[in-house]
């Protein structure tokens, strides 16, 4: 079954330019990946239009992280094509750098730099990768720290912040590079329950501003609120993909129903 089928096309029919290639932020076509002999991604096909929000869910070990990490080359795919913002990912290091400059990522465990202050975490890449003067970088960093509502923490170290604050810093750090696409890999699953909301709120406001987002999460409320499409993965394949409405009310694949039954109660 081709996941990127007619259903998706009808879902995007509102946008007249949907069929031209340049309209896609991310295109995965026939992507395969192996860890040794273990076939972790199997014929993954997914096209994400600019400004589209995709939520990816599925059981643990189904390859969600692997797929999303292939998009900014933290993992290398072995077969198929991945085109990000018009740049095809190959072994060419310059292209990888180009893609990483345009793609921001937030991790489950934040991966902030503990030896740098919050402000330095945010200005590091603009200064060294974008060659921005320090003053401008700090100005932009403060702008985004204000947007994630923690400007007063700028001179603290990550270890002094709560998990929710750290994840918001991680989002601000990515935004400072002015990315076209944001990837999230379970950004709230390492957080204490009372901090989940503050991070999700930040992500919702980002979504409302038109950012292209691919988000691995099991926060189904978030999926309902912002996702254009929900992707369900199992055993390295995309099993089902649909609008949130259809996905939750009318799951069509047996495995999807089983999975939703497990997480929705």
């Amino acid at each position: 079954m081709k996941p990127d089928g007619t259903l998706t096309m009808s879902a995007v029919a509102a946008s007249p330019a949907a069929r031209t290639g340049s309209d896609y932020a991310v295109e995965l076509a026939g992507v395969h990946k192996w860890y040794g002999a273990f076939h972790v991604l199997r014929d993954v096909n997914l096209r994400v239009r600019k400004g589209e929000k995709i939520v990816i869910c599925g059981p643990s070990g189904s390859g969600k992280s692997t797929m999303i990490r292939c998009i900014n080359r933290l993992e290398e795919h072995q077969k198929g094509n991945i085109v990000v913002n018009g740049t095809e990912l190959t072994n060419d290091l310059r292209r990888i750098d180009e893609v990483r400059r345009e793609v921001g990522m937030c991790f489950q465990h934040f991966n902030l730099f503990p030896h740098l202050t919050i402000l330095e975490n945010c200005t590091l890449a603009p200064i060294w990768v974008r060659k921005m003067p320090k003053k401008d970088a700090e100005e932009i960093a403060m702008k985004y720290l204000t947007r994630v509502r923690i400007p007063e923490q700028a001179n603290k170290y990550p270890g002094q912040l709560s998990g929710g604050q750290q994840q918001r810093v991680a989002i601000a750090r990515s935004l400072c590079m002015n990315p076209k696409i944001m990837l999230f890999d379970e950004p709230t699953s390492a957080l204490d329950p009372e901090m989940v909301k503050e991070v999700l709120d930040t992500m919702v406001s980002l979504a409302n501003e038109g950012m292209t987002m691919l988000c691995v999460t099991h926060e189904m409320g978030f999926a309902r609120q912002v996702a254009d499409r929900v992707v369900f993965m199992d055993a390295g394949e995309i099993v089902e993909m649909n609008t949130p409405d259809q996905f939750f009310s009318n799951p069509r694949h047996e495995r999807t129903r089983l999975f939703l039954g497990q997480i929705l109660h």
Binding site: N72, V103, A125
Partner: peptide
């Protein structure tokens, strides 16, 4: 490993990652 990945995700190259992130720590 997360430190290397955090650095890569914001676009730092090998030498920058080593000099700014890994070696200081």
């Amino acid at each position: 490993k997360g430190q290397y990945e955090g650095a890569a995700s914001v676009g730092l190259g090998y030498w920058q990652t080593m000099r700014l992130i890994i070696l200081p720590q």
